[in-house]
């Protein structure tokens, strides 16, 4: 069981910084709803990463001030944003053409379940909760590298890195990397390769059976 009272491992900000370190200068990047939007706030502008939001903007730059906020300038999470010089606006078909056409280098999405084959589930829990897939199914099949940024355990305390996803899938064999508060993992097809553990975290704390770890 995860202990919410005594958080272990990285903070959300540290998770965002771990992901930012993976993104090379000059890359294009799409950010999903929720935790991944932290990345836009923490990205160093000097890195020249261009941030795409699928509702139709390229060149997202953090948050507006109360003086500059615009009701027509939002990200895919419906939060207010600001844009950098050189930004562009476009319709949703062109926006998803950028994605489907392979013009977006990285995409960071939230997840409910990820398995060793790189399958992802993040859009519904049958009979309980339906959020809809939004743009996630297009993103996982279009962006060149898919990074999942999620909590390691569900609210019920179950590990979200599995041998096989149980929830309806968002995409098959699409995930390149998973970051949780406990570490960074790469699905290899038969196991998760542990790329990095957060400070003080041991393999025994991951809640993943040893056969699924390499």
């Amino acid at each position: 069981m995860s202990e919410s009272s005594t958080p272990r491992g990285w903070t959300r900000e540290e998770m965002a910084d771990e992901i930012i370190a993976l993104i090379p200068s000059g890359a294009s990047l799409n950010l999903g709803i929720g935790m991944p939007t932290l990345i836009a706030e923490r990205m160093d502008p000097a890195k020249s990463v261009v941030i795409h939001s699928e509702n139709g903007v390229l060149g997202v730059k953090g948050r507006p001030t109360r003086a500059t906020v615009s009701p027509t300038l939002i990200n895919a999470g419906k939060e207010t944003i600001s844009v950098q010089a050189g930004a562009s606006f476009f319709d949703s078909a062109l926006s998803f053409g950028m994605i489907r056409g392979g013009h977006i280098d990285f995409c960071v999405l939230g997840g409910m379940e990820v398995d060793v084959q790189g399958n992802l589930a993040n859009w519904m829990v049958p009979g309980k909760k339906v959020t809809g897939m939004g743009g996630a199914m297009d993103l996982v099949n279009g962006a060149r590298q898919i990074i999942i940024m999620q909590s390691h355990f569900s609210r019920g305390g179950e590990c979200k890195l599995l041998a096989e996803c149980r929830l309806p899938l968002t995409g098959r064999g699409v995930v390149h990397r998973v970051i949780t508060e406990l570490g960074m993992f790469v699905p290899t097809g038969t196991a998760f390769r542990v790329e990095k553990l957060a400070p003080g975290i041991t393999m025994a704390e991951l809640g993943i059976v040893p056969e699924l770890l390499v």
Binding site: E54, F96, G142
Partner: peptide
């Protein structure tokens, strides 16, 4: 899926009778 949604609407306006997309395969 949102990209399929927008492209299906675009296709209707543009006279495209159908298109193949990887989005949603296996789901």
């Amino acid at each position: 899926p949102q990209g399929t949604f927008s492209e299906r609407i675009r296709a209707a306006g543009m006279g495209i009778r159908g298109f193949y997309t990887p989005t949603g395969y296996g789901t």
